[in-house]
Design a protein around this nucleic acid. Structure first.
Lengths: 223, 223
DNA sequence: TATTTAATGTGATTTATATCACATTAAAAT
DNA sequence: ATTTTAATGTGATATAAATCACATTAAATA
């Protein structure tokens, strides 16, 4: 497989020279993961940068009490950056929520690109900055909104940021949904069923249709 | 003021060439802030990278319910990166908890260093990666530990990461302490007084002495 | 030094949400 | 198709922590 022909290039990789792309091709392993498979695991050794070419992934950490889904990431994005640059051991896990295509890029080669290609480095920095800000706000919402608001938030997130359609198949179990918004499966269950009773959404198992977006936005804002 | 003689250089800045340091000197404003002063403000415009040379700072965001102290940062560190690289508007505020020395570095010059100096860029990337991981774990603790554990955590943080002494002057009011660990001033008050009753710490207003570190570690781990 | 203002302490009460317990349904495996 | 297992729904109860209310103390200001 040659990276030149890859149609899933990251915003950073687009700025690599032909020679660099060639170098990348020789130091990049393409792997496919099925829904539910672990891409990498907390506490395991890693010396690769992991790039999600297509699919949907949950990034999760085992906390003092429960598993927490730190974020849900849609392609294309780098998954393993924060882990790999500081430590050889992964600080979190990533699991495929849909079938995924992933590249494992050799760390030294990636580092070399940063050293030699400033535009590439700048793109990476931009992505990391965005991640940090997003992470601040996710935490803020997790700690300061009531569950109803957090459920509304999550539904809007799937609509706006992931599927871009009012009707979608929720890629999480109720329990995972709980892990994503820091609550229990019971509370998630109760609240989405309340939403249905109020005509805000329609649910059939994992299939969800958003009927009244404004109400969800309102609930999300009121906390 | 010339940056060559500056004794507060960041790990990244150490890798700048003489010419680059010269360029930095002409595009860097040194400012001092007194305890309590705002260094920059959420929603205000910014086109500078902000570098904390000395002192202690709280980074905070106004959430849907309360002010949240996102993190407490000791010199030396960059304060304004995640904000400035993506948006022209600050997404959070920073306030001096002690008297601080700060540099405002022109964004374009900083960007130029990233483009031209790969080692500099790599250092910045490393710092950002570390920030993201830290931010994940802070959020995990905030959401999954009970207040007692979070208070213990915070006290150990001031001991280990900030003052490196068992006795220190808490740089926060009880209310700010609450904002830092997502609780109310009343709860903070109750718990640190309980800790005192149990002989774990000694408090006199803002002066705190850690008497039984192991107990605090234990409380922190039990959640 | 006196006076005002801000910060802190502490009990009583309320509340959001976790936990527990069990029924029901869907999905997977045989 | 049948059985087993996993996921979901829903009421009753428990609980950590917020909120309220007011007293006390420290710090700032006149």
């Amino acid at each position: 497989m040659n990276c030149i022909d890859c149609t899933f290039k990251s915003s950073a990789t687009k700025f690599l020279s032909k020679g660099e792309i060639e170098e990348l091709s020789h130091n990049c392993a393409h792997v496919e993961f099925k829904k539910g498979e672990k891409i990498f695991k907390e506490s395991s050794f890693s010396s690769n940068i992991i790039y999600l070419k297509s699919g949907l992934v949950k990034v999760h950490i085992l906390g003092p009490k429960n598993e927490q889904i730190t974020k849900i990431t849609k392609a294309s994005a780098f998954l393993g950056l924060p882990t790999t640059f500081n430590e050889k051991v992964n600080k979190y896990s990533a699991t495929a929520l849909e079938n995924c295509k992933v590249c494992f890029i050799d760390l030294e080669v990636f580092k070399h690109f940063i050293y030699k290609n400033g535009v590439f480095a700048y793109q990476i920095i931009t992505e990391l900055c965005k991640n940090e800000i997003d992470s601040f706000f996710r935490c803020l919402n997790r700690t300061q909104k009531q569950i109803t608001g957090r459920v509304a938030d999550a539904l809007l997130f799937f609509y706006h940021d992931i599927y871009e359609e009012k009707e979608f198949i929720l890629p999480l179990t109720r329990e995972e949904f709980g892990n994503y918004i820091d609550t229990t499966r019971e509370s998630v269950s109760r609240i989405i069923n309340d939403f249905q009773k109020d005509g805000i959404i329609k649910i059939k198992n994992k299939k969800i249709k958003i009927l009244k977006e404004e109400r969800l936005i309102n609930i999300s804002e009121k906390g």
